[in-house]
Design a protein around this nucleic acid. Structure first.
Lengths: 145, 145
DNA sequence: ACACATGTTACTTTAAAAATAACAGGATTG
DNA sequence: CAATCCTGTTATTTTTAAAGTAACATGTGT
């Protein structure tokens, strides 16, 4: 499969809006930064808006974070773009007649849930603000700016 | 993308070999349990063998775990089939001219590594034996067996 | 009215995984 | 030693979910 980077793009969008509030915040401008297309950006922004992370206005390029960046976690962003994220995926086509094939799915489901919970706990501890702070450190440390 | 379930299949294979040692352990038989094809099974088994988790013999259908199932972790299996697993994926095509686009990749790389480490720590704590034990509980609790 | 924006739906392209095929060799049996 | 079944590996085709693109109804401000 082609691995999804929707989460990365969503974080990118939120960071852009928070860090460059005086720039052009149209979907076209953000798309130029993401090197993607405006339609994709609008779809992601729509999901972020529906999740209550972003405030937008139809017709006006004036998106704003709905809450302080310090109170938005990476997990919040993930759940905004995917209500039931699965980092690990189960093979749902196994032989039900077999002891292993017939029980491995439920078993792995339990196991993967543990891993998912651990990963999401870490994600819940990482705020958009900390990501922005780190990005600025990276930018400051660049040789040629 | 199509999300990979190689990890699930690899666990399935190891579980099958450990739990049904007196059954036919040919790639064709295992493929019937996974509902996949023998070639795929052989490729996965080859990776597991190279990682030192499985002992196989060309020409003979007699695979065996190289170590006790209690000493094989889910993380070991993951690394056997993918030396550099990435649960979250970065968008590697962003505008380098932009403050955000030019620094988001390194930033997310750091952030995702934290999440990856948390997930892998949990995976390291889950043994193949515990997965097998849980599978047997599931099998025992099935209404119609 | 016009220019430009969002929000949403539908369609096309793409790339990674899975499926399949093929075959060189090892093992076992009669 | 021929026949048969197996493994291990490579190459090719098919599938499918994400990304890319297009289109358009509708909101906004001059």
């Amino acid at each position: 499969m082609k691995s999804s980077h929707k989460l990365s793009d969503a974080v990118h969008i939120l960071t852009y809006i928070e860090l460059l509030p005086n720039d052009d915040l149209s979907s076209a401008a953000i798309a130029r930064s993401v090197e993607s297309n405006p339609s994709l950006i609008r779809r992601l922004m729509s999901q972020l808006t529906q999740a209550g992370l972003l405030t937008t206005q139809a017709g006006k390029a004036t998106p704003k974070l709905s809450r302080p960046a310090a109170t938005i976690s990476l997990r919040d962003v993930l759940h905004a773009i995917d209500p039931a994220p699965q980092l690990l995926s189960i093979d749902d086509k196994t032989n039900p007649q077999c002891l292993v094939g017939g029980n491995i799915q439920q078993t792995l489901n339990d196991v993967y849930e543990e891993v998912q919970t651990a990963a999401e706990a870490k994600m819940a501890s990482i705020s958009l603000q900390s990501i922005i702070d780190e990005l600025l450190v990276h930018a400051a440390n660049k040789p040629t700016d």
